[in-house]
Design a protein around this nucleic acid. Structure first.
Length: 574
DNA sequence: GCCGTTTTCGGCCCGACTGTTTTCAGTCG
């Protein structure tokens, strides 16, 4: 099994954890964490780079030492250094870091003084009252450990929530806080504002003349499960849903600085502050300072301007080249929801959708769209009631009639045709040529070997009738992993065949991911942002696709459903 | 461990809150 970039990132993170517990140089620890983040965000497969003998030290954050380690991991599947470190520190000890309040120093003390090596032993020691006796620990800490330990064990896997879920939680909480009074300005920052596909916790920022009132209201919110901390300017709670929410109250003239600070990402902020440092400036959540003098802080624009940068859209703030682009004046003009003129992947009650063709069309019209493509399943997807050729011809005819009947929206007759195991399609070419648009997708045999899966999809997109490759990795966030496939290769082929890649806007799918959006753009491949709506209401998923597209640096011209109808049809050669 | 037209050595982002303390280290974001 080839080593993935994620495997390498995980190894570096583990090393960072262990070094931290050992009390190693914190800057070395940071270098490993930084490397893990960078490796995880690369589009290019490190295995391939190593195979081609590329110079890995060209990757920022990777020096000689880490480059050698990457080569070793790729060639042997493991890293001697990590194996050595594991001899010093039992692996179970790393789980202790997940308990809030326990950091590397405390974990080390528990290990050295009490011989605790894992969560189970920690629980036992706490129950026996041994922990409160340790220097630097007390009864409260011991109590807290007992409280948290089961929660951590339970949530050991994945605790991030979908952005769509976060929107609901944040929406309610913001309304509640507003109704309690004392709020002059309120905004959700963090990864939520960066429109990341999943959100770990919510960061809410408030301007208030009465911080105490806001904080009191916050901790009294009826779905608060636990108050982690409560202060004048900062409080944290865990909601019953398990989501952590941090609330910060800042003065008005610091709002921009605080918003910038708490929007992150951490990596982006560090990069910005490094620039500030070179200019002899200091940035914190209260503003930009030259010595004692505050020179910016009320707005984000001001903060960026103070360090010589234009305002950078939150979705780009990942330290993936946006700082360099900003410095050189080549930030993209990112796509916005208002640019979208239609939806190119939707379902109706002809198959597994809930609404009629007409209902879907009218819903699209009410969103201000010019067109909507109806793309029901083909017969192989039996579970969805996929249509055969005769049924599709009936549907095409129905769509023609409805188009005559209603104004202000054009319904495109389309299909989401199954890509069969050998890469052929589930419908004959003659029929495919009759549709306005053909979307092709994999719906079964997710477990083919990487090479066969890749070739399967490449064969499908080489069919000139195929316009769009839908949900190209088949993942369902939190439920189903993406299937093994060489997406980079597929995108390269798509560049030659003129095939469009779909960014599926369903909040649980959102493939292409941001990094592949950016890669596709760089390869000159166009994107369709489509909702895959199975109900009229879920046409509103478009905003999630837009968020991901913006994270992937996409501009209106990169996305085909920003085209007016006539240009779209021309693009599709129909 | 990374990085560098001010540096190949000496830097490396910054502040709030908590608990255990009597002035602060550790943790967290």
């Amino acid at each position: 099994m080839p080593v993935t970039n994620e495997d390498i990132a995980k190894i570096f993170d583990q090393i960072a954890d262990i070094l931290e517990i050992k009390g190693d140089n914190p800057y070395r620890v940071r270098a490993y964490r930084n490397a893990a983040r960078i490796v995880g965000g690369l589009t290019q497969d490190l295995c391939e780079l190593v195979e081609r003998g590329e110079d890995l030290t060209k990757i920022p954050g990777i020096g000689d030492a880490l480059a050698k380690k990457i080569v070793e991991i790729v060639k042997t599947g493991s890293l001697r250094k990590l194996e050595e470190l594991k001899k010093d520190i039992p692996p179970g000890l790393l789980d202790l870091l997940k308990i809030p309040g326990l950091g590397p120093k405390k974990v080390r003390a528990l290990y050295e003084k009490l011989g605790i090596e894992n969560l189970e032993q920690l629980k036992q020691a706490a129950q026996e009252g041994k922990i409160r006796a340790l220097e630097g620990f007390g009864a409260r800490t011991e109590h807290k450990i007992l409280e948290e330990i089961d929660r951590v064990k339970k949530a050991k896997s994945e605790s991030r929530i979908l952005l769509s879920h976060a929107e609901k939680i944040a929406g309610h909480l913001v309304e509640y806080l507003k109704s309690g009074g004392g709020i002059r300005e309120i905004q959700v920052a963090g990864s939520f504002r960066r429109r990341k596909e999943t959100v770990g916790d919510l960061d809410i920022l408030v301007i208030s003349d009465n911080p105490a009132l806001v904080m009191d209201n916050f901790v009294a919110y009826d779905v608060v499960d636990e108050v982690l901390m409560k202060g004048e300017t900062r409080s944290s709670v865990v909601l019953k849903s398990g989501v952590q929410v941090d609330l910060r109250v800042v003065p008005e003239d610091s709002y921009g600085a605080a918003l910038q600070y708490f929007t992150g990402s951490k990596a982006h902020n560090i990069a910005v502050r490094k620039i500030a440092q070179k200019e002899g400036l200091k940035i914190n959540e209260y503003g930009v300072f030259r010595g004692e003098e505050k020179i910016a802080g009320a707005t984000e624009e001001e903060v960026y301007a103070a360090v010589g940068l234009p305002w950078i859209p939150p979705e780009l703030r990942e330290d993936r080249g946006e700082i360099e682009a900003a410095l050189e004046g080549r930030l993209p003009n990112l796509i916005e929801l208002r640019h979208i003129r239609g939806d190119l992947h939707t379902h109706t009650n002809w198959t597994d959708g809930h609404n009629t063709v007409e209902e879907m069309a009218l819903a699209a019209k009410s969103l201000g769209y010019e067109y909507i493509a109806i793309t029901d399943h083909s017969k192989h997807t039996t579970i969805a009631g996929g249509l055969d050729e005769a049924k599709f011809r009936e549907q095409i005819e129905q769509i023609r009639r409805i188009n005559e009947k209603i104004d202000g929206i054009r319904i495109l007759s389309g299909v989401e045709v199954d890509i069969l195991e050998d890469g052929s399609l589930d419908l004959p070419d003659e029929l495919l040529a009759e549709f306005d648009i053909v979307v092709a997708a994999v719906h079964y045999k997710f477990d083919l070997p990487r090479d066969r899966q890749t070739q399967r999809i490449i064969r499908a997109i080489r069919n000139p009738n195929v316009d769009i490759l839908a949900h190209p990795t088949g993942r369902l966030i939190g439920e189903r992993k993406p299937y093994e496939v060489d997406l980079e290769e597929i995108i390269k082929v798509a560049a030659r065949t003129g095939t469009v890649m779909e960014l599926n806007a369903n909040p649980q799918r959102l493939d292409l991911t941001d990094i592949y959006c950016k890669f596709a753009k760089e390869m000159g491949v166009r994107i369709a942002i489509s909702t895959d709506a199975h109900t009229a209401d879920s046409l509103n998923y478009m905003r999630f696709g837009i968020g991901q597209a913006r994270r992937g640096w996409l501009e209106p011209d990169d996305v085909i459903n920003t085209l007016p109808l006539d240009k779209l049809l021309k693009f599709l050669h129909r």
